[in-house]
Structures are given as C-alpha cells and as structure tokens.
Design a binder for these strands. Sequence first.
RNA 1: GCGAGGGUGGCGGAACUGGUAGACGCGCCAGACUUAGGAUCUGGUACUUUCGAGUGUAGGGGUUCGAGUCCCCUCCUUCGCACCA
Length: 858
Amino acid sequence: MGYDFQAIETKWQKIWENQKSFEVETDPGKPKFYCLEMFPYPSGALHMGHVRNYSMGDMLARFLRKKGFNVLYPMGFDAFGMPAENAAIKYKTKPHEWTWNNIEYMTNQLKRMGYSYDWRRRVESCNPDYYRWNQWIFLQMYKKGLVYRKQAPVNWCEPCGTVLANEQVVNGACWRCETPVVKKNLEQWFIKITDYAQELLDNIDTQLTGWPERVRIMQRNWLGRSEGARLSFRVEELDYTIEAFTTRFDTVYGITFIALAPEHELIKAMIDKLSEKAEKKGSGDGGSSEAKQMSDFVARCAAQSAIERSDAGGEKLGLKTPFTGAHPVTGEPVPIWIANYILMDYGTGAIMGVPAHDQRDFDFCRKYGIPIIPVIQPEGETLDGATMEAAFEDDGLSCNSAQFNGLPTQKAIQAMIDWGEKEGLCKREVNFRLRDWLISRQRYWGTPIPFVHCPKCGLVPVPEDQLPVLLPEDVQVVDVGRSPLLDLPEWLETACPVCGGKARREAETMDTFFCSSWYFDRYCSPGFDKAPFNAKDTDYWMPVDQYIGGIEHACLHLIYARFFTMFLSDAGLLPCNVREPFTNLLTQGMVIKEGAKMSKSLGNVVDPTEIVDKYGADTVRLFILFASPPQNDLDWSEQGVEGAHRFLNRVWRFVEDNLEGLTHEPSSGDVYSESDPARVPMSALSDPVQRDFKRKIHNTIFSVTRDINEEKQFNTAIARLMELTNALYAFQPAEPVGYKLRREAVDVLLNCLSPFSPHIAEELWRMLGNKTLLAKTPWPVSEEDALVADVVTIVVQVNGKVRVKLSMPAGLDETQLKDIVMSDAQVKEKIAPQGIPKEIVKIIAVPDKLVNIVVKDL
RNA sequence: GCGAGGGUGGCGGAACUGGUAGACGCGCCAGACUUAGGAUCUGGUACUUUCGAGUGUAGGGGUUCGAGUCCCCUCCUUCGCACCA
C-alpha cells in the first residue's frame, strides 16, 4: 500500500470533525486546561511562523487531553486593522470582503494541518457579535473613569494616516510600516492603563513565574518605575511654579539650571510676556526678538524627528531664557533654559539641572558654559567643577550640601527627602515610564468608538441598549489618508441620545489591540449575547494555562491583555482572584531560512501549503517541532523535512510489514484484543534482550512525558521516539512473549507519536485492530520496575581520565564496587603501566556510575 | 551605554542534581539489493595519531578526585531598552 498521507489526512480530519472529537464544554467536575495561541491576523494565508506556533499548541492540547484534562483549545482571527484597507484599495475590493475571504481560506488551511480546535468557538474580531462587546467594555471603562480625551502631542504615522500608541512606536518609527513618526498635537482618546502600573509591575514577580525571564524583564523596563521626589521652582515674574521630578534629591545643592521641554506650557507664557514687554518699549526692541528667538527654537525642536530627539548621542540643543526660578532650598535665582533633550511625556517636562552628577546635564553645561558644582565626592577625592571631564554618577559622600555633608549617597537621598518633606520643599513621588494608552485611530476598519458629539450636550456615550454601533460594511476605501466614515453622512449624522437633537457620531475607531485584549475570554462563551462572556464559563476556564506566541508582543498585547484582565476582574466580570490572564507563556522563535527571517522582500518564503502537498501535514508538524527547541529560531531545511518524512515512512512500513505478527498470537493465531495491550510485566521477563527492550519502551514513555510536560523540549521528545523506532527494528521477537513485547512497543510508539503526527498514528492504530480513537486514548504510563537497569557501565578513571569501562550488575555499594574494580586485571595495568608501581592516594566510587582512582608516582 | 540570553562536529542540536561530551536528525563516506535510483537496508563519520595514545565544549585563570556544567577575567554574538530626569 505504502504511506498515502494525502488520503489518510483527509480521512481522519473528516472523522474527527464528524465525531466532534475536539468539542468541549464547561464542566466543573473535570480538571481543565486552557491551551491558547495568539490568534492570527487574516492576512491571506498561513506562513511558517503560524504553523510552528500552532503545531506546538496542538501537540500540547492533544497531549493534555490524553492526560485526562478537559482541554479548551480554540482559534479565531484578529480581523480588524490597516492591511485590509490597503488591500481594499489595491485590489479594488472592500475590507469586509477581503477579510472574510481570508478568514475562510485560512480556516481551511488550519483544518488541513489537522489542528484539534473546537471550531464552534471561532472568534472574529470584525464580527459585530464580537466588537459590540468591545464597545460595551469601553463604556464600562468610561463609567469607571478610565477613559478620557486629551489634547496632547501624539505619535503620528503619515503612511498609516493615524496616531499610534507609545507601545507601537519602535525606535521612533511605526511598528508596522517602520516610517518615522512625527509628533502632532491632537485631541485623542486615552485609557488610563497607568492606574494599573503598580499592579502590572508587582504581579511580574508574584504571578508571572511561568513566563520567560526575558519577557518579564522587558515588561519591567517598559513599566519603568522610579522612586524620587517632586520639587518646584517659583517663577514670580510669570506667576508660575515649575514642577520637576528627580530620583536624586540628594543633588539639589548642585542645581545650576532649570530645563524645560520645548513643548512645556510655560514657554507660551514666556513668549507672551516678552512680546508684551517689547510692545511697551516700542517696536524694534530686544524683547520681541527674544520672543521670536524662543518660538523659532521651539519650532526647530518640533521639526526634529522622534528618532533625532530620542538619540542619546544626538546633539543637545538649548536656549537660555531671560527668566529664573527660585531654588527650592536656597531661594537663589536659577536660570531657566529650554532644551531639546527634555521629554514632555516623562515626569513633568521640566528638570532640575545638576551637571556635576548627570552626564546629559554635564554635556549640556559644557556646551553652553553653565557652571558645574559638585555636591558628591568619591571617597578620598575632591572634584572640581571647572576641570571635571564627566559627570560623577556613582555613589559617594555629599558635600557642599549644608547639614548633609559627609552622608553616603543612599542615606543622603532618604535623609534629604525626609527633611525636604518636613520643610515643605518636596514631596515623595513614584514615576512610571508607562504612558496612558492612546486608543483612537483615524481609520475605518476597526471598532467604532461608541460616542456621539452633540453641540448641546457635548460628548455623549451611546447607551448600552443601542449597541453595537455598526461599522458600515458596504464602503469603498479610496484613500488611506481619510477615513471613509467621514464621508458617510447617513452614518455620521445621528440623534443625541440625551437631548434627541442633531448630533454627529465619533468617526474614530479603536486600536486593534483593544480587540485582542480579551478574545481569550470570549472563547469561553462563544455566541453569548447577554455580556462579553458568561461568568460560569470564564470562572471555569480562566486563566489561560498555556499561552504560545511570538516575543514581538512582549510590550504590546501582553501588557494590554494583562491590564484588561485586571480591569474586568475589578469590574466583577472575571473572578476577583483572576488578575492575570496567562499563567504560562511560551515565546517561540522565528522560522528563518538562509540566515534570515522569511520575508517576501528576500524571496525566501516557504509556503506551508506546498510543503503539506508534498509531504503531508504530519511530516511538516513533526519536522517543525523536531528541528529546534521551541524558544530558538528554527532554520528551515527541506532536507530536514525529508528526514522527518523518512521517519514517518519507517514507522508506517514497520507496522504494515509486520501487521500479522503485531495483531496475532504467533502460536495460537488468536487476535490480540484492542482493550488488552497484551503487556508482559518486567517481572515475567528473564531474557536480558527482552528485558532491555521492555526497559527501552518504558524509558521512552518516561522521557517523552517529561520532555513535553516539564521541559517543553519537543525536539528531544521526538528524538526518543526515533530511538524507540530504531530499537523496534533491531528487536527480533521470539516466542509469544517477544511478539507481545513488540506489540507493546508499537502501541506506545503510536500513542506517543499521535500528538505530533496525529493522522498517521490514528491510521496505524486502526490498522492494528483498535476501534477507538487514538486521540481519545489515555497517554501511556511507564511501569516503575521497567525503568530500573539490571546492568550498568562503570567508568573507571585514573586521575580523572577515563581508562576502562566495566559492565556490572546495578546496585553495588561503594565497597563492593571498589573491590571489583581494584581486582580487575585491565584496571591494574592502567594504574601501574609496564609494572611500574604507583601510590594509590584515594579512590572515589559513585555507585552505578564510576570509580576514580587517584595515584601518584612513588 | 544599560540589561538579558548565547558561543559544543561540516549543519540543526543532545548531555537529569558536576561523573562515559557529541543522543536524535541532516549531510558526507563505504557497502548491499537493484536495469536504475534522489527508494530501502547495513556499517562508518569530533580532531590528531608513530594505532600505544594524545587533544578537544570561544580564550585565559580558579575551585574539585573529576568541569560543557560552578566561580573570576577577556573576546565574540543575538536580543531588548536607550537623553526616563
């Protein structure tokens, strides 16, 4: 017959579907396991990265089902977003149409891979059944005061025609199209994710212990907590108080300037003041030119790209203003500067400048000739502000700091803040790098933000009973620069829910990361229409036990989803003890080819469909899990694929060629019954070859189970199965016992192989006469007594070098071991070569492992 | 610059608490069966070698009876963050 993978795969996919083999229900009586993969964007077709991701997930889901868990294993599509609009323009279609076609196509591709999803639970975020709950959740956040609108300098991507959240700006460029972003001052929708900054940080240590350390560090850095104090500089002339945040309050006596971000609100007041002065004095006076200088400088900074502004090595630009602020401690006037290296979106947009102890301030002062006053000395040294070559940023002893002189830095920080708070000069403060989440997008293909602009009532939320605010589907997108929603008066114009008067819908849509922040909750209650999900389902299934996806979401989706979970838990929608959505996280590496990530521009993309056509889904799945450990990058190699295919062929041929002997008792000809695995206990075996073979079978079960379950090393698990197959070919069965053993080995092999390559395993299982589905057959259990070795190899070392290997019965104690080894002729020769006697200094014996004899010349 | 991973055959990668380095696979070499084979099977495959052995896990040092594994220094590399006050 041969291994006809096409026929087999189609056959079993149909059987699983007809028998609803992978459909699950909420059942609090059973132990649950929620296995989840990051749902794909329906870009058109699956790529190898998807195949890798989902092959891991499916393997785990199938394994855990066999281990007796009620496994929730769903799939869906993250279906809103930019590419649909671009494609619609390019192919003259509609985003709606394009997206749904892709969803259907990719669903079929996934089915062809044999993934065991419960397809009834498929979620598509562009489905009104889903996004109405986006809107609903948004309104709940609004009610809790977590949603607000604010005029702010925001990141704008020109090609995408929209604003971006901070998380979506990578190295100053758009995360999707990599175009440098520009700052625009716009009124936008924000979500107060910063309210949860502390919990997001705390839980990393207490709850995310099942996450890779790398992601935990990245999130910690992203949240960027720092402790310090807020202090203020009074500017009498402008009747204004500049606030600044510092982590180094111990350096206050070293302040020689104040610096404002070019976007700082005080600058406008300064310009006004200067112009006013100039007017009083008459035109042509220095006052107005000062004002002009200032606005020119601000404009110049604004023209710098985000990349230039945020480059640490970039040149620092500054402008001295004619104003001063009062030093918070001494009251002395301190000059106020405007500097391009001060960021408006961190802290207060103003800093206290301490050049002696901050390298950035130091560079700035050297350039502009601002004095440098050291207030910390390294022990035994005296710094001189005039000659210092770099800022001294390490700990040391305070100096020039009144009563705090001589205090070591860490103590000085605490003591000075304590004192400052008592004197009313500063206030302890914690700052985060995390910014509020900018949620609105000037795009069409997304969830409409459920608000209405009423000329009388202002901004009015759409009442919940009027949800969803449907996104018009029959829309031509002609230009990326303008949302077509703005040109749909019949959609745009509506009645104000409060006064009933003429009002206009909010035409902006939500960031798609909003959709992906709770889809895993929706999977628990597909189609539920009373709420985003049914508490009885989420109470059972949440949190996700194993999440698998790419590292690229470390500071995007994986932070947003955590925030959502905390919010939903606080809102009473999720159980109060569920604060984190994902207990364990596996971040898989990329699939690369010829040293580079597969990409269209490099032309090194391998289409999964072609490979599946050529070798079958079982082979592709096996190869992709075998070629590399999950976290590593995987180098695509068609020869490797052939190797995996060869292995499956070997398994196939073994069963096919030995079918008679595997299914019938050799002496009587009786058929082995499927319910009886015909196992022979270890205790009944005396032949050492048979005992070894039995041990091989059970060692395989043991190590495959451990590799999958604990180590998450799927590559080594597969290697064990290859070893067992090799042993199977080498084993010569004799007598009924031998045949039974061989059958046992084949049963174990197929059972353990089935999570990796389910179709072939299922087919061979059926060929052996089994009536049940292998997918529903419990995972094998290793027999304790079959794991213990009879004979061990004892390595004999002389001075730490391997000299002789001796076979010995297992379980000898140290003394017995030493006696046998020391009386061995070979060993004697190695200790005293050519009969030259040596002094034996020491003998180390490790039972069942080795003996090391330490000798020296006499 | 800061932070976190990694450096093991020709290649992907194994090696549990320190105890036989190189499992498994790819590739390569030889042989078998074949009209043929890019099918299949068998054997070999770290390096050097005077065939006794010697040397090998980026380099150097240390701890130990014994180090890929633990400690220190150096080099290389990947990734993340990067004017965060």
